[in-house]
Design a protein around this nucleic acid. Structure first.
Lengths: 343, 343
DNA sequence: GTGAAAGCGCTAACAC
DNA sequence: GTGTTAGCGCTTTCAC
């Protein structure tokens, strides 16, 4: 009884009194099947509770229905948001998500075990989260293997893979303006690691907004973080030890912003009354601290969903081979308690 | 040049001057191959940069090298910890991780699309995170399909699947004792949702410790949370509106503990000087708030690793069919700033 | 519209 | 030790 043989297409064909080929056509929703036979086949499938074998399909047809998602040191909440959305879309589209964590790859990516893994599994496509989205080595490898790639949050000018991005410059610009509107002019900026393309973009948005409001860009107010909570917490000390500390801080992601808040509170500095702090992403941590973060909502869910859609399209239809580039341009700022008007 | 045909075992066999079978034996590390021929085959594999096709292997051999991980509404940091560890172990063992998010399954699991997915993909095994680990319907489905299951954080007495657990009772007991040692006797407890077996266990540990120290269990100090940050934040109000509020609160997970801290701070209550708060899990959020949480370290990484090991063992060796049950019994309390001696 | 034949790349079971 | 023969369950190609 246990571990009984699963039903195969052959049995379905016999039950329906047709050939395997017809069953296969019904399965793949091809149009060239007569309505009446299709109904008969569908009845047999339901009656036998038949489930196609993905491995067999993959071997014969070349499509694995497997989509990969690779990332490198993401923050837990960013990863979680990415997963939830990618997973849902995969389920809706009949794909499965295979995760590859490249965080602790030591040495050359070229010679790493990861290549073997990626080429063994025959993914239909690979989604690259930043900062992998601009990793030339990885991109080249995928291209050589003929695996379609969708890069998140970075559009490589001279590339031939698809991408889904967000206008980080505009978003950071808006957030900085909000700070300025609230009476802040000495605004500290905590930058992300430069291997993340978005880190530079957000800085540009910040500087542009300052210039647009005739506030000089003060390099001593720009700090280098690494997108982790800890770096924000450590940097809070540097910021607060300035002879004239800023009245507000714009951290380029929520984790660092939360870190700055914690670091300030640890030193007895009141947030937001003595120091306003805003973040970027609107991941779970933004609402899981007190005061809650005013932050830019990065459309992580939409981006992930779009990426899955793209790969699904590439796989299913006769794809023209042209990479697609999408930019989500809904920019939204979520206002909470961490930013107040300058007193 | 692009999308060239991958090398197959046949080409390797020809290059090495042996049969496909010999190559297959080398690939599968079987012992019955002469050293000299093995070297020759390995050289050919390296020279051609051959990568076995997982789909073909799965079809022919019955092992997919795919391990599933299913979860339901996990906290981002719990999920992240689980993933990191499961992924690493999968990589070390040559498996791939396929994620199934069952969070928003509506209606009967029986009739849901998820069954179709799970039976199509031919997983080598499935890891069930709580509260899925005691979901009888799911367990039954997997058993009927002959897919080995490892349940996390819950050992079902009359079950025939494996499990990896942690002694939640003992851990909660120790934490409660630490609170008592710090002079607290009015200790509030925030319980998790009862569909999580661990939620009850932790409550038992808390009550046992109280009794062991002759402190009566006061039901009015026990609150029902749902493991989310928000529930902790909301409950902070209830707790602090008691005529005689507790001097310390033990929340059954870090997310709720962080919520209680935020809720208390929002009301102007100083943590930890006016109210000590401790958590359970030691996930990322515990160190990402201020004050940082004193908490029980749940061995999520070890549990995940062990679960992957178990499935790998079941798949590879001649498994005797007996479910294995492991309990990680290293209990560790991480002391940080959220708990202080009662003044 | 439907079916028959031929594989996809690999491993199980057997031979030698 | 190594090779041979059959498939695994499906889709492709090409008949009809």
């Amino acid at each position: 009884m246990n571990k009984r043989q699963p039903i195969t297409i052959k049995e379905v064909a016999e039950a329906a009194g047709v050939s395997q080929m017809t069953v296969s056509r019904v399965l793949n929703k091809q149009k060239l099947v007569k309505e009446s036979t299709r109904l008969r086949v569908e009845a047999a499938i339901a009656a036998l509770n038949y489930r196609p074998n993905l491995m067999a399909r993959g071997l014969a047809g070349g499509k694995s229905k497997l989509i990969g998602l690779a990332y490198y040191n993401p923050s837990p909440s960013y990863l979680s948001a990415l997963l939830v959305s990618a997973l849902k879309q995969c389920r809706d589209l009949g794909h499965h998500l295979v995760i590859e964590d490249l965080s602790d790859i030591e040495g050359d990516l070229d010679n790493s075990v990861i290549i073997g893994r990626l080429s063994s599994i025959r993914l239909d496509g690979l989604i690259l989260a930043p900062p992998l989205s601009n990793n030339r080595t990885l991109l080249k490898l995928m291209q050589d293997m003929g695996i379609p790639v969708v890069a998140l949050s970075y559009r490589d000018p001279g590339s031939n893979h698809s991408s889904v991005a967000f206008d980080d410059v505009a978003a950071a610009f808006l957030m900085t303006e909000l700070l300025i509107e609230n009476g802040h002019s000495r605004i500290g900026f905590i930058r992300g690691p430069l291997e993340h393309p978005s880190a530079r973009q957000r800085q540009i948005g910040y500087e542009n907004a300052l210039k647009a409001h005739d506030i000089p860009v003060d390099k001593s107010l720009i700090f280098d973080g690494d997108f982790t909570f800890k770096s924000g917490m450590d940097l809070a000390n540097d910021v607060l030890e300035l002879k004239t500390p800023p009245t507000a801080i714009f951290a380029s992601n929520d984790d660092m912003a939360a870190g700055v808040i914690a670091g300030a509170q640890r030193r007895g500095v009141k947030v937001p009354s003595e120091l306003s702090i805003v973040g970027f992403d609107d991941t779970a941590i933004a609402a899981a601290i007190w005061p809650r973060l005013t932050t830019v909502k990065q459309p992580i869910a939409e981006m992930a969903q779009t990426a899955v859609d793209m790969i699904s399209d590439i796989t299913s239809s006769a794809w023209d081979g042209e990479p697609a580039h999408v930019t989500i341009d809904t920019i939204q700022i979520i206002e909470r308690e961490s930013l107040v008007k300058r007193s």
